Simulated scan of single mutants.
Amino acid sequence: MKFGVITFPGSNCDQDMVYTLESMLDQTVEKLWHKDPDLKGVDFVILPGGFSYGDYLRSGAIASFSPIMQSVIEHANKGGYVMGICNGYQMLTETNLLGGALLHNDSQKFICKNVYLKPVSKSAIITQDLNVEETYKIPIAHGEGRFFINEDGLKELQDNDQILFQYANEAGLVDDTTNPNGSIFNIAGTTNKTKNVFGMMPHPERAVDPNLGNLDGRKLFKSILDNLV
């Protein structure tokens, strides 16, 4: 399996992701530049977090028009794997590879802290091996992370097992008190119907190195690696 990590102007988690995949998970990684549409034969594309183009329009909106994104869309439409984290998740909604939108946090403030995630989907490779009775501590760092989708869209996500994670507390309680940004239904990540495109606001790559004191992110990546086809 060959991973590709794209760098956009303003990306600040691209090297974190490269380090996680190469040094922590022993994977082959190709560094991709947003102006070059060549995906260089990668199997799994990752859109990392950051502030692409300074988030001067909507977060991820300008990046969605970068030359490489048409190749990413074609890769996804052919069944190739794509994962967007934080700013990358915003790009996936801007390109309509995933439904919904990421709006300003209901507090109107940037939030940077650890949160707990409760896995929901039983069919997506990123959650397939996770225990739905447990929670996983993963950092968030965003100002526009409030997931929104209309009622019909939410029902579709539920019916098709497309909700990856919900914000919860350590004990697994999911309610307004455990929702850091006002996301509808406490949604922290979603996938598409065919389960090859994944988006999430929290940063699992920041919870893989033992030096950071948290290894819960490693469990998400292990589930991906163990279930790739």
Score class of each variant (00 low, 15 high):
1 M>T: 13
2 K>W: 05
10 G>Y: 06
10 G>C: 08
11 S>Q: 09
12 N>L: 12
16 D>S: 09
16 D>C: 09
17 M>H: 14
21 L>S: 12
23 S>T: 14
25 L>H: 13
26 D>W: 12
29 V>R: 09
31 K>M: 13
31 K>S: 12
32 L>R: 00
35 K>E: 15
41 G>F: 09
42 V>F: 02
48 P>M: 13
48 P>E: 13
56 Y>G: 11
58 R>P: 01
60 G>K: 01
64 S>F: 08
66 S>E: 10
67 P>G: 03
72 V>G: 07
72 V>F: 08
73 I>Y: 09
75 H>G: 04
76 A>P: 04
79 G>M: 14
86 C>Q: 10
86 C>V: 11
87 N>L: 07
88 G>A: 12
92 L>M: 04
92 L>Y: 00
96 N>R: 12
96 N>S: 12
97 L>F: 02
98 L>T: 00
98 L>R: 00
99 G>D: 01
100 G>I: 00
102 L>S: 05
108 Q>W: 11
113 K>C: 13
114 N>F: 14
114 N>Q: 13
118 K>D: 09
119 P>V: 15
120 V>K: 09
120 V>S: 04
127 T>V: 03
128 Q>V: 08
128 Q>E: 13
132 V>K: 14
132 V>P: 15
136 Y>R: 13
141 A>K: 05
143 G>H: 06
144 E>A: 03
144 E>C: 02
146 R>P: 03
146 R>W: 00
147 F>V: 02
148 F>R: 05
148 F>S: 08
149 I>Q: 00
150 N>H: 08
151 E>R: 01
158 Q>A: 09
158 Q>D: 11
161 D>I: 05
162 Q>A: 00
167 Y>H: 10
171 A>V: 01
179 N>R: 02
180 P>N: 11
185 F>E: 12
187 I>N: 03
187 I>G: 02
189 G>D: 02
190 T>D: 00
190 T>W: 00
190 T>N: 00
192 N>S: 04
194 T>K: 10
199 G>R: 01
200 M>Y: 08
205 E>P: 15
206 R>K: 12
206 R>H: 10
207 A>F: 11
212 L>F: 15
215 L>I: 07
215 L>S: 04
219 K>Q: 15
220 L>W: 13
224 I>A: 08
227 N>C: 04
228 L>C: 02
